Simulated assay, not measured.
Amino acid sequence: MASSAPALLGGSLKGKVALITGASSGIGAEMARHFASLGCRLALTGRNMETLQEVTNECIRRGLDKNKILMIQADFELEADVKRTAEETIQKFNQIDVLVNNAGVLTAGSVETVSLESFDKIFAVNVRAPLQLTQLLAPQLIKTKGTVVNVSSVVGKVSMPDFLIYSMSKTALDHMTRSIAEELAPHGVRVNAVNPGAIVTPIIKRSFGMTDEETAQFFEKMKRNHAMRRTGTVDEVSRTIAFMASNDSSFTTGETVGIDGGCHLLVTKVPI
């Protein structure tokens, strides 16, 4: 008699090749660790090789052989680095099954204060690089009937003061997700996005030069923007991404999946 025990969520990813961009910290680092525990072969990108090596060591401790991990130092403002990332991944593994476009940058600013230089940088990393990488790897993804998961944000769905350009970039990424999903669906390639709310990661502290205390105060205030009265964690995001990348979501494409504790629902902030 066959076992009635459910299969491991994301278990179909075992042995697959996943490219995770921006894997040296935050959501990307947790994705690398989680995908390693599922038995994926990994190509990991980051600007800081020291922290990327730390993540790689953690993946090895999760049971993934070091020969199944490729580290790529890349700055996704540069088209040449994006192109090299695609080339080195295929050269190492000769295939790709999962592309996770996670690398991103964040700056604050309103219509009165934002600079065009910030616009160019944010759109280069958050929009142009995912488009370029998906375009370069599309032939390989078609061969494997692979999946693409774009890491967007709740601010791609709702407006937030002082995050004008960042919000615009994530809205563009969401629409790109839908458009490419329709184009690649006949080839068996699925393309989805996830839209996290406030997730406790280093990007806020790093982007705004905050102290530890200021960062903690920021995330405490952000709880009021979420119907669930709390912020999210990187593992909550990584598990959802694994679901979207695996056969567990085999009939889902073109979706933008919220992981935001109900942030998108609120018109007014909630009392804490």
Rank of each mutant, 00 (worst) to 15 (best):
M160N: 14
R206G: 10
A181E: 14
R178G: 15
D212W: 04
I27A: 08
A7K: 14
N57S: 15
S238V: 06
T113S: 13
H264N: 14
V158I: 13
A108G: 12
N192V: 10
E58W: 08
I60L: 10
E183L: 14
A245E: 04
T51Y: 05
F218N: 07
T171Q: 11
F251T: 06
S169Y: 04
Q91N: 15
A172I: 09
A43P: 07
K68C: 13
R33E: 07
L8R: 14
S12C: 00
F208Q: 00
E77L: 06
T134N: 06
L184Y: 10
K157R: 14
M160Y: 15
L173V: 07
F251I: 12
L44I: 10
G39N: 02
S159E: 09
L184I: 12
V189I: 08
G63C: 07
N67A: 11
A80Y: 04
T134L: 09
M160T: 14
A29C: 08
E236D: 02
V191T: 12
T253V: 09
D120R: 08
Q132E: 07
L116D: 13
S159M: 05
Q135D: 09
E220G: 12
N247C: 03
G209Y: 02
P6W: 07
R128K: 10
G15A: 02
I199F: 03
V155L: 04
C263E: 13
S167N: 06
D120K: 08
S207N: 03
T211M: 07
Q73H: 04
P186M: 12
D97T: 02
H187A: 14
E50S: 12
S246V: 00
I204C: 02
R239I: 07
A86Q: 05
L137D: 11
V127Q: 07
V105L: 00
E77K: 05
A138T: 14
L64W: 08
I69T: 04
T51E: 09
Y166I: 01
G232Y: 06
S37Y: 00
L265V: 04
M228F: 10
G254R: 12
G63E: 05
G156R: 10
E236F: 01
K170G: 06
A216W: 11
I204G: 04
G261W: 01
G22H: 02
A181T: 14
F119G: 03
M244A: 06
V17I: 11
V155M: 09
I96Y: 06
M168H: 11
R224I: 06
S159H: 05
M168K: 03
I96T: 08
A23N: 10
I259S: 05
T89V: 10
L78M: 10
D65F: 12
A245D: 06
V148H: 04
V151F: 03
T268L: 11
R33C: 09
